[in-house]
Design a protein around this nucleic acid. Structure first.
Lengths: 211, 211
DNA sequence: ACATGTTTCGAACGTACATTAGATTTACGG
DNA sequence: CCGTAAATCTAATGTACGTTCGAAACATGT
């Protein structure tokens, strides 16, 4: 306990890092404790000094991942001047979500990728946390809509799902160096606020409003 | 061989249905052949009369899933009058993609959900097929942009990824009966073409164009 | 240097799984 | 009915994995 990082803490962190990375790459069931241990520089049996079971390790990875993106988006809002426009509020939230996801955070991307295929019991333990994050976005969007920055005739729940989908799916295709995270965020916001359509001159009977 | 469906074909189909359903629900590695066999009404060993291995079964599920959504979108374009607007072309493509995904097609949703966590060798076998589907969308969007229906200052590759993400992610949250598939498609198209933003009156310095 | 607590090792255990192969049943044309 | 091929069953095999546990190695305070 020389510094504030005991040896145990360091090992724990190494194990978690390795687990998040492997879970994200190969999924939960396909990842073996032997691989995680090797990536963390130890033997499989040694993991049990730090974690009670593979499930427990999984739960901590999921928890960290969701906490990080939640905190990132929350802080993006707090950092903003109090009189910021709702577009800016949404924009920085999008940037924060995307950045957390794509910038070396295996925890968050692991969470997003594997959550749907994790033992049901583990899912149950994290539903509250997921709801809390959804609620954060719900608040941001609702406030924007109520104050007239977003159309009032759209189902915000649906918009939120489509938006989250567009962002979350980036873990499936994003490759560092090909496109900047900022560019992705810009395109997303452009689509969200203005769309990318141009009125076609000759046509009639277009159906631009939601049924 | 009384009808055109031999008993073997029926069993094969039952196995594939069961496999697609389980793969979609629990992922590939976590799904056991015993479960698939039980869901198909037989014993695990019997599967090997129809498929050479679990991987082979997986590959066929993936193949069917991708083929279905590809065909659905392709047919949506062919069914359209030749003089249809590009917005309509995109709209029916979105509807076709979504409908295939969400309407009882465990194959397509299994493909989307588990592809990233499948053995690398299996992924390699399906990259060509995935590229072909991407190319179909690329063509639709490019034609729309070239003829002035979409803004020329956006990265269509990025737009396509964000769009696919928004649509594909629906397999994670869609529940039949809560929202109609048509409503989802409408919202998606509204976002894509017009956005849901409303100009805020007082503000200045908004950044509505892509860098 | 010793003692004590901490961390890791290494080997073993049990189990669950994919796969195999021979026996058994089912379907069906003659 | 009978025979043959198709389809399924049953039991066994090997293996890979999660987990356990006592021994070894390491660190730390006295």
């Amino acid at each position: 306990m020389t510094s504030e990082q005991s040896k145990s803490d360091i090992s724990r962190a190494r194990i978690l890092d390795a687990a998040a990375k492997m879970f994200r790459q190969k999924g939960y069931a396909a990842t073996t404790l032997i691989e995680i241990a090797r990536a963390a520089g130890m033997q499989a049996g040694s993991l049990y000094y730090h974690f009670g079971s593979k499930d427990e390790l999984l739960e901590e990875v999921l928890d960290i991942g969701m906490r990080r993106v939640h905190e990132a988006v929350e802080e993006s809002q707090e950092r903003l001047p109090a009189d910021s426009s709702h577009r800016d509020r949404i924009r920085v939230a999008v940037e924060a979500h995307l950045t957390t996801l794509l910038k070396h955070d295996d925890y968050t991307s692991a969470n997003i990728r594997i959550f749907g295929q994790v033992p049901e019991e583990v899912q149950q333990h994290h539903i509250r946390q997921r709801d809390a994050y959804a609620e954060l976005w719900r608040r941001i969007l609702t406030k924007a809509q109520k104050s007239g920055a977003l159309r009032s005739d759209v189902d915000l729940g649906l918009v939120r799902m489509l938006l989250m989908g567009a962002l979350n799916w980036s873990v499936e295709w994003y490759q560092p160096g090909r496109t900047s995270i900022q560019t992705i965020a810009d395109h997303m916001c452009l689509m969200l606020f203005s769309g990318i359509g141009i009125e076609e001159p000759i046509r009639s009977g277009e159906n631009q409003t939601v049924a």
